[in-house]
Write a protein that binds this DNA or RNA. Structure first.
Length: 210
DNA sequence: AGTGCGATTGACT
DNA sequence: GTCAATCGCACTA
């Protein structure tokens, strides 16, 4: 059931970089679309990849979104055309990885909240300092740490060849659930968090992932 | 220059 | 289950 036990060669052969034209042009649709797709990080030590199992949409006009206040130095990557990385530093302790989701000049994005590790599990464990498979990339801060992503990757085109990109699904995607977003106060009533039902790598309280 | 506040995590009862 | 650490950012003066 868990693809993390697949051989690296078998998993690698299945991942192809996503073209921007394949990404839905709407933020909420992109958040749903990305469930089951992959993130690939090419490091000097080898490839790290994982299945995206949980996302949150931060849509246009959303008071909870960083882009709500307009273009600033920190959030400028959210205003790039869809498929670019927006990385920021939160709570003085962790980085969070987002995918920009609209046309250039419009600020919106999708937060990647959890991965099911595929390739480079030993590298992830080294980045994270833990070994339990379920804890490697469950939660947005852990996800970025697992991928060794920080501000250096902010603004990267995730639809271009390079150190960080989005890839196709490695297997059939399960049913997608929706819930309230985690850890926000403004516009908290919207169901803009998406996850693969039943997947043990999804973060958050069980009440939000039935 | 000073203030308030998180799209979290890990430690702890 | 609860809770505090931690610091860059945006805003006010």
């Amino acid at each position: 059931m868990i693809a993390a036990s697949d051989s690296e060669a078998r998993v690698r052969a299945r991942i192809r970089r996503l073209r921007r034209s394949e990404l839905p042009a709407d933020t909420e649709q992109l958040a749903r679309f990305l469930i089951g797709k992959t993130v690939v990080r090419e490091t000097p030590h080898g490839r790290i990849s994982g299945r995206i199992v949980e996302t949150e949409a931060y849509i246009v006009g959303d008071a909870a979104a960083h882009a709500f206040i307009g273009l600033t130095r920190r959030n400028r990557s959210l205003f790039l055309k869809r498929g670019h990385a927006y990385v920021y530093f939160a709570y003085g302790s962790c980085y969070l990885l987002n995918v920009s989701s609209e046309v250039r000049g419009v600020g919106a994005g999708v937060l990647l909240r959890a991965l099911e590790p595929l390739d480079g599990i030993a590298l992830i464990a080294r980045n994270r300092g833990v070994t339990r498979l379920h804890d490697l990339a469950r939660g947005p801060g852990r996800l970025a740490e697992a991928l060794d992503v920080d501000l250096k990757q902010d603004g990267l085109d995730l639809c271009a060849p390079g150190e960080l990109w989005l890839g196709t699904a490695t297997r059939e995607t399960g049913a997608i659930g929706a819930s309230l977003r985690i850890g926000i106060t403004r516009d908290a009533h919207r169901e803009l968090r998406f996850y693969e039902r039943g997947n043990p790598f999804v973060s958050g309280p069980r009440s939000l992932s039935p």
